[in-house]
Simulated assay, not measured.
Amino acid sequence: MWEKFLEESERDIRSSAPKEPSARARMVTERLRKQDARGELPPGWRTGPAWQEMNGRAARRRKLRAVFGVAVAAAVVLVALKPSLLPGDPFGAGTAEAADASPLPDETAPPTAAPESPDPETPTLDEPFAGSPALRWADGEAGIVLPEAKAVGAVSKDRVEQALKLTKKLMVGANLDPKAVRGARPDAAFSVLDPKQPDVVDHLETALRSPSRKNDPVALFSRFDPDEIRLVGDVIKTRGHMTFKKGEHGGVAVLADYTFVYPVSRADGSTEVTRTIVRRVLETELADPARYQVTPGRLLVVEYDQEIGNSSCFVFDGYLHPEFSSSASAGSTPSGPAVDPYDRSRGVDDGDREECGTVTRT
């Protein structure tokens, strides 16, 4: 740019330098001067700016262009020496801290590895996701991004889109609805389930009324006892993806795999913060009401599974029970393998559910 500036400046100087008029030009000028003295030039001949005025403006334009060229050249040199002077970090030269906190792109398929461990930090009431990979995850419902709907066999694109939206509504109602997470009945989730599938709906209703080892509502719903636990802030971090395929009941099946991270503290006013991590794998189907006895616009639950990190084992009262580092576990002593609850590259643990494992981080 500096060389270009020098070349343009030299060219402008040459073009603006005074030149000796030719003999013909001197003759024409002298003839016009005598005609003007005799009053022979027609009126209006000098309308418009005088040549001297035009040349003056042209010179000013060249001067501004030259000054601008100097400013640009100086700016280029300055930015080259100190890129941080430009706003917005246009060259991607931001700090490592900013990169660590930047949101992750949406997950569209299972990752190939567990997320890296950020610098160890203790979560606080003001920074409940400090030291957690979930810091870069989406907030709540924004983390459930639907794939583009396409027709599947005889199932139209609109039906596929409907199935995706209903499955998202189920996931939100079961895991993100503020009232449901704080222990209330998850009505939004029930509004999506098909009442003509009693083995699922009746089972869940029984689990909410009379939770037990056999009927445990946390198998599908994330909920905390409001007398024991309170959520820290209004944000639940979410990450996962959704896919679809041809269903077995004349419709479209949707497979959802999401992890939810809940920052919590004790309800007694303690400032200690911990996190419970819940991963849910769910398969639903929007069946064909013309061929099967189903309720139009409602979902069948084909299968569901879960993996819960940092909740007391073998406590079946219908709630999740986070453990805090300052107190001993209220449940059984961990005896199972250690698991990274943030590792979404592996499948949900199908091992011995009688064992109480440990989590490598929260």
Rank of each mutant, 00 (worst) to 15 (best):
S15Y: 15
S15K: 15
E30K: 15
R38T: 13
W45H: 13
K63D: 14
V72Y: 08
V72S: 07
V72L: 12
L78S: 04
K82V: 13
P87M: 06
P87T: 04
A96Y: 08
E97N: 07
E97T: 04
A98D: 08
S102V: 03
E107F: 09
E107R: 15
P110Q: 07
P110I: 02
A114N: 03
A114S: 00
D119H: 13
L125Y: 04
D126W: 09
E127F: 11
G131F: 06
S132Y: 05
A134C: 04
A138Y: 01
A138V: 00
D139N: 10
D139R: 03
I144W: 01
E148G: 11
K150G: 11
A151N: 06
K157F: 01
L164P: 10
K168A: 06
V172C: 04
G173N: 02
G173F: 00
A174H: 11
N175E: 10
N175H: 12
K179V: 10
A188C: 10
A188I: 08
L193R: 01
P195N: 07
D202I: 14
T206Q: 15
L208S: 00
N215E: 10
D216W: 02
D216C: 01
F221A: 05
D225P: 05
D227E: 11
E228V: 12
I229P: 14
I236C: 08
R239I: 03
F244K: 01
K246V: 09
E248Q: 14
D257G: 05
Y258V: 07
Y262A: 06
P263Y: 03
R266I: 12
T271A: 15
I277N: 05
L282G: 12
T284R: 05
D288R: 06
Q293V: 12
V294H: 14
V294N: 13
I308D: 03
G309I: 03
L320V: 02
A330K: 13
S332G: 11
S332Y: 11
Y342M: 03
D343S: 02
D343K: 00
S345G: 08
R346G: 08
T358N: 13
V359F: 08
